[in-house]
Design a protein around this nucleic acid. Structure first.
Lengths: 234, 234
DNA sequence: AAGTGGTCTAGACCACTTG
DNA sequence: AAGTGGTCTAGACCACTTG
């Protein structure tokens, strides 16, 4: 499988940005420069820049040069995305660290969110996601044992919970709740932030067919993470 | 100002979909058909389809024809809702208080978000929304004077900015950014909260047809407001 | 085999910003 | 005046799904 030319250029630029060769607000090579450097037509070089612009990574300036956008992260509310893919798309390195993976008695809140009896046991995982080493999400997830009986046997340092769950049971439905919260002591430690740093929390319930699979509480430092969405009305 | 060809094609297709000529899952004209119908090169027709695909309005199927996307996946999350309607739906009383309504020089940030020259003037409104007397949203809105020339003459204590703007120019598109922030001094006063109370901020840009209409920064006390969404996958 | 979308070329003219 | 990004053309070859 050969990588298409525009993707090669895109990845080259992403790498330059990631490595700091092209810092925030730096001038990006022009379409013509990229075309000649990569022995490619201008339309192909253009496509690489265009897609980076759509992802909010570079800013196009008609009449003058494109620049590297401000670093703040952005992700789409419209898609259920794997945090690992999101980070990879930004050309950054993702690492997941599984802090705990246990079976526990469902609390009333958890049982309610998973739609199971209060007497049930559930699986619980706590994973820290890092982007280039910086903690960007603490993922606390409660899983319905009926939907994923082998959950406790997985290694969530090497596969994300999201990937594992979609593999064994494709998602058919999801529900979100987004709110701003202050971090408790545990979150302060895990995210390496102060008690007054606001956090963006996404609580997500997912279904496969009609069965509820998991309830996840995803907490992000407010200064590191944003959610974006684009809507078109007909 | 003439409208570019790919936009003409895009708008034509949007209209067909809107009017039900092309319902959910219908086959969309191929790139070649559009090219010949509009006397345009295939690359130009392609661009129209490509952008519709990026917006999730059509689905591209390599080797076979593009189709109109399922309605569910389009109208998914973060509806554009009027805060007044939302509060009314909860059976509560809504009151809006217009704090200021002025013409101002666009700051670079505002000009950028409205897609207008930095030398332009814009209209700015600042409105507090209350639910049963409790402040629940501070709405700071910047409006493109070209899109809403009579904006300054309205009474935003009795009609919401949202209602007024949708009345004079139906929304066709919106873009959101959601983040967690700490309130500045003004917000602390207006929302009656402390400096350490996290807030949920939604920045929203809206378009009517191809014209950008307004840029709104909506700030809510984190303990009073949540955003919800439900997604179904097909 | 015919049609479709995905990638790509080597040109062109334009509006815009900068020296 | 020179460089930039925005739009557009008329071709090409390919991988893929369909009859």
């Amino acid at each position: 499988m050969t990588v298409s030319k525009y993707l090669q250029i895109k990845n080259f630029l992403l790498q330059q940005i990631e490595q700091g060769v092209l810092p925030e607000f730096a001038l990006v090579p022009s379409e013509n420069e990229l075309a000649s450097k990569f022995s490619v037509s201008r339309m192909t070089a253009r496509r690489a820049l265009q897609e980076l612009a759509e992802q909010g990574i570079v800013v196009r300036n008609q009449g003058s040069r494109s620049t590297v956008a401000s670093i703040k992260s952005q992700s789409s509310l419209l898609e259920i995305r794997n945090i690992a893919d999101e980070i990879a798309d930004r050309g950054h390195q993702h690492k997941a660290q599984c802090v705990s993976l246990v079976e526990m008695q469902a609390t009333p809140q958890v049982a309610n969110n998973l739609g199971i009896p209060e007497t049930s046991v559930v699986f619980q995982s706590l994973v820290i996601h890092r982007e280039n080493g910086m903690p960007i999400q603490v993922e606390e997830r409660f899983v319905n044992p009926i939907a994923a009986p082998q959950y406790l046997q997985q290694d969530f340092n090497s596969i994300t919970t999201h990937d594992y769950l979609t593999e064994i049971a494709p998602l058919t439905e999801a529900e979100h709740l987004v709110e701003a919260v202050l971090p408790d002591a545990l979150l302060q430690t895990l995210l390496a932030i102060s008690q007054h740093q606001p956090c963006l929390r996404v609580s997500r319930r997912t279904w496969a067919k009609k069965q509820m699979v998991s309830y996840a509480v995803l907490t992000h430092p407010g200064n590191q993470y944003r959610l974006g969405g684009h809507l078109t009305f007909t």
